[in-house]
Design a protein around this nucleic acid. Structure first.
Lengths: 222, 222
DNA sequence: TTGCTTGTGTGACAAACTCACCGACAGCCG
DNA sequence: CGGCTGTCGGTGAGTTTGTCACACAAGCAA
């Protein structure tokens, strides 16, 4: 008997959930679609739901008072935006914000249902805490990177990440600067240096990777 | 009827816990005492318990491969070390480590009991998620600071924090550098500058605050 | 005393950030 | 087509922060 909720199959850990909890999920979860650029949560608009991302990606970023930004992590399809749940249950406001990087499809589980599910289902608890664990270690990595790693290495790494196997990147230097939490000029200068070494080719709004191997070597430098 | 477990009174949120959960806490929780300097969790020794700190403080720090360190946050009496619980349930290893900064007394709640309590008690859930919320916002603040704030401002702030109302600080420059995730020389130079301005008086292993007001003014600069 | 460990001071240089400004490019509109 | 406008990228100059190397001072023990 197949329900309309086969979306659950794409969330490792939720597919094996017990019968009663499963029904509860089906009854309370609602599917939503959001356009690229939509602000999912942020200062002033606290999260009211646990969000499970079915398709698309969400970028979570931190804003500084001076107007600078840094990308903390991304939520991909099959993952959940759990950090909001802490605030979801603790009623505390967030200083970070989540933005739909593409059009997205997501499942929303309201606060009350989340609490009930946590209570009822061991599998759901495991799912939630595993997601927590991943996010928190992500945050630790971000801290380690900005505190201890050189910009050129971080930039090389980020280029590879954002390229995702492709060789063509459609990004402005400013966008990359936000990814790394640095200034646009720093990115421009580093990219120019990479271009001098013939690792990349630059043109307005795009970066072409010419020598992925060299870039990877730099990225893996400790 | 007073049980041996009045420690619970010092944990806001656990004092009002329901009868059955309360009993479960009493039965499974064990009190431990640890000496200053003890490593509570860290790479290689994953946390096996939720820890509630009755007295003393725990410093949680991140180590870099290059051997540098940064203090992420502190757990004080009446707080819990929840971030370990994520890993506790998700079985994932930690890249940070927790160190007893003083002799400490703590309550340990084993993994299985933690899971049961989460399931059974709404109050316990609220307690845990509130603790999560606080830690995560702490981490966000750390990220904002190291990414965007000037060292002199951060140093001023840290001096006030560590002084805690006193005017005498027994710390080496190296220890402060670890707090801020920077190099010892940077701290030395900044402190020397503060001394030239007659905000502090330096001597081997101690710092005396002379003009707390000026230091506070700098710390509050945006 | 002498020697050892640990903590601090400092100069020189490299990396990163800030500020100011300029020119190049794309899109749009007359 | 030409000119306007907003965005994007390049660059020099000055400051802050991080790195390296080393010198010196304070405390402690033999």
């Amino acid at each position: 008997m197949l329900t309309h909720s086969d979306w659950r199959l794409s969330f490792p850990g939720l597919d094996t959930i017990a019968e009663d909890a499963s029904r509860m999920l089906d009854e309370t979860a609602q599917v939503v679609t959001l356009r690229q650029g939509a602000v999912i949560f942020g200062p002033g608009s606290p999260a009211e739901n646990l969000m499970l991302l079915v398709s698309g990606t969400v970028r979570v970023q931190q804003l500084s008072e001076a107007g600078r930004e840094i990308t903390l992590y991304r939520v991909h399809a099959g993952e959940s935006c759990v950090l909001t749940t802490a605030c979801l249950l603790a009623f505390e406001d967030y200083s970070a914000e989540g933005i739909a990087e593409t059009d997205i499809q997501a499942i929303l589980i309201p606060r009350a249902a989340f609490d009930r599910l946590i209570s009822v289902s061991q599998e759901f608890r495991a799912f939630v805490f595993a997601a927590y664990s991943k996010r928190i270690t992500d945050l630790f990595m971000v801290i380690e990177e900005i505190a201890f790693r050189r910009m050129d290495i971080r930039l090389a790494q980020k280029l590879l990440d954002l390229a995702g196997g492709q060789t063509l990147l459609h990004l402005t230097h400013q966008q990359i600067a936000i990814e790394l939490g640095t200034a646009r000029e720093v990115v421009s200068r580093q990219l120019k240096e990479f271009e001098r070494r013939e690792w990349v080719e630059l043109s307005r709004g795009t970066i072409r990777l010419l020598d992925t191997e060299r870039v990877r070597q730099l990225a893996q430098t400790r």
